[in-house]
């Protein structure tokens, strides 16, 4: 006799609730990225100057100063389109991970710590900033876990 083992996730949310949680997380992530991208675009000169003072990336500062906010806008657009929200979540988690690695490396090795993160986020200390980023990575990963689980399917157009 053939036996089929069905493993069920211990963490269970109803389809509707799960879908809503993922959608709210997408909105929060999109809000964060659009908020910071706008301030980087509007005060671009300052952002560029800040990056150019960092020895490792200083020579690419002009490219990075456009690439970083553009990537944030792109990920935000992916997050609000139901067909691409998952790609957006991967992009969000990936970008924030890169930012976090950059901050940790700066804290460990750099003599100067220029923060040009945009808006009120610049008021955070570096350690607070790391925790802030880790929290956002965690909620993005949680949203991906929920949407990848078989508990519910996000409605597709």
């Amino acid at each position: 006799m053939e036996t089929v083992k069905i493993s069920k996730s211990k963490f269970h949310l109803s389809d509707k609730l799960g879908e809503r949680v993922v959608f709210i997380i997408c909105l929060i992530c999109m809000f964060l990225f659009l908020y910071t991208a706008y301030s980087k675009f509007i005060d671009h000169q300052r952002f560029f100057k800040g990056l150019s003072t960092v020895s490792v990336i200083g020579s690419f500062a002009i490219y990075l100063s456009w690439l970083v906010p553009s990537s944030e806008v792109l990920v935000s657009v992916l997050l609000i389109i139901p067909r691409t929200y998952k790609l957006g979540l991967y992009g969000f988690a990936g970008l924030v991970s890169v930012f976090t690695i950059y901050i940790i490396s700066m804290v460990l090795w750099a003599k100067t710590l220029p923060c040009n993160c945009g808006g009120v986020i610049e008021k955070l200390t570096w350690v607070q900033h790391i925790w802030f980023n880790l929290a956002f990575i965690a909620i993005a990963v949680f949203a991906l876990y929920l949407s990848n689980s078989n508990n519910f399917k996000i409605q597709k157009s």
Partner: peptide
Amino acid sequence: LGLMVGAMAIGFSAFTN
């Protein structure tokens, strides 16, 4: 809803900057 939140994010960012 996404567009509304996006507009709020830009508005809030414009306000703080």
